Simulated assay, not measured.
Amino acid sequence: MTIASIRSLTDIDYLYYYPGKVDKNGVLTLDAKNATGWEGFQSISPSKVMISKFPIRGKNGSVHDNSYVQLLLDTQEIADSEVAQPLNQSQRYCTVFGIYYQSGIYALLGFTLKALVSDPYKQAFAPSITYMIQNGPSLITFKNRPEQYWHYFYDRDIEKTCDSYDPVDYLQFALQTSGIASSECFPNTEIPISTSRCINGDKVNVKLKGYTFGTFNNLSSTDVKELIIRFGAVQTGGVVLVGWKDTKWIAADRDWDENKYFGTELELDASAYGGRVVFYPSLANVAVIVGIVCGVVAALIIIILVIIYCYCTRCMVCYYIYIEYAVNVAIVAPASEKKVVTMTLNPSIRITLQVIFLKAGNKSIPSSYEVQPSQQLTQYPSSYAASADE
């Protein structure tokens, strides 16, 4: 969200989450160093990340727009989506799936996926909670247990069955580790024995791997819009918000009698909103990295223009200053009308320009000014990007 420079950061500027991945043996190890109570891992201080560090999706989205309607996420389209369809009797008998359905997590995952994938016509699906449970932890362990709460942070086995409540608190770690698959691949009627292949033998199509749940509190409607244009869907209360029209939210609400979701428009009010989103923590660094890269590219362009100008004008003062103070950039210029300019930024990065110059009278650069490559820059930026299609 937009953060004014005249105030300090507060809790509303952040998403809160618990980082952690399940290892290949099914063990999840949590750091209890900052635990403040006995309520299990929820008493461990969560990590936080600034909302404003996440890039806005698309080119034209703004919280100041009168409307923001995402592809296939208008009110009628919500009702037609895979995740909105009524539960069947077998799904209702799987208790642990029912918990995630009633909590709204099932809908949040499904509508977030629909918003983020590049082709929602083909790539969106209803998520398999049972796939996530099977890929969740089988054993919870803790490190750095605080002495005063030591006996509350004991190792615990997780029973992975439809009747077990053990997996309820740990779905976010399964999401970070293994992402989500479709309920067509793994029906939400039983916990699969293996998730290497779909139950029909097809290859598993995994989405949102590396993502997790982030919570927020006391946000204004404008702040919630900031979340929507960044993360696609926002769960608050019993609804999932996916856009807005004028003074109304575009929302997926639940029909409790038929156990299905439908699209509706809800009044946009001045309430303080709390809830959760699905997000990729590493994307918080992308905006900073892109800014650094753009700055370096701009600097390189300026340097190249200076080189061309100096050679074209035979500007001796400019040439001398550039040679003496060009911050580790070396130039090689053979004495001919076809000049080859080589810039060495790093042993693995060389930029070579071939410039054809017009005659400039009898002016020329004396051979005493020819310079051989010497110093080199030792650092250069790298970038990282992630997508919902992982």
Rank of each mutant, 00 (worst) to 15 (best):
T2G: 05
I3L: 12
S5K: 13
R7D: 04
T10V: 12
T10P: 06
D13S: 06
Y14D: 00
Y14C: 02
Y16E: 04
Y17A: 03
V22D: 05
L30R: 05
A32V: 03
G40R: 10
Q42Y: 15
S43T: 08
S43W: 10
K53E: 11
D65I: 09
D65H: 14
S67N: 14
T75N: 02
I78R: 07
A79F: 10
V83N: 03
A84E: 07
Q85M: 15
L87M: 01
Q89Y: 03
Q89P: 00
F97I: 02
Y100T: 01
Y101A: 02
Q102D: 04
F111Q: 01
Y121L: 00
F125D: 10
A126F: 09
P127F: 09
P127D: 14
I129N: 05
I129L: 07
M132S: 12
Q134S: 08
N135P: 10
P137G: 04
L139T: 11
I140P: 00
F142W: 05
K143E: 09
K143Q: 08
P146R: 02
E147C: 05
D163A: 14
D163M: 12
Y165L: 14
D166T: 08
D166I: 10
D169E: 02
Q176Y: 07
A181G: 10
S182C: 08
F186H: 08
T189C: 01
S194L: 11
S194K: 10
T195H: 07
T195N: 12
I199E: 15
V206K: 15
K209P: 12
G210M: 11
S220E: 13
I229E: 09
V234Y: 00
G237F: 01
G238I: 02
G238C: 03
W244R: 05
K245Q: 04
T247Q: 09
K248A: 05
W249V: 04
D253S: 15
F262T: 11
L283K: 14
A284D: 02
I289A: 08
I292C: 02
G295V: 09
A299Q: 06
I303T: 07
V306A: 08
I308P: 01
C310Y: 04
C310D: 06
C318N: 10
Y319T: 09
Y320E: 04
Y320I: 09
Y320D: 08
V327A: 07
A330P: 14
S336A: 13
E337F: 13
T344R: 14
P347F: 03
I351P: 02
I351Q: 08
V355P: 00
I356R: 06
L358V: 04
L358C: 04
K359S: 13
A360C: 13
S364L: 07
I365M: 01
S368W: 11
S368V: 13
Y369E: 07
Q372L: 07
L377A: 08
P381S: 03
P381E: 00
S382K: 12
S382P: 04
S387L: 09
E390W: 07
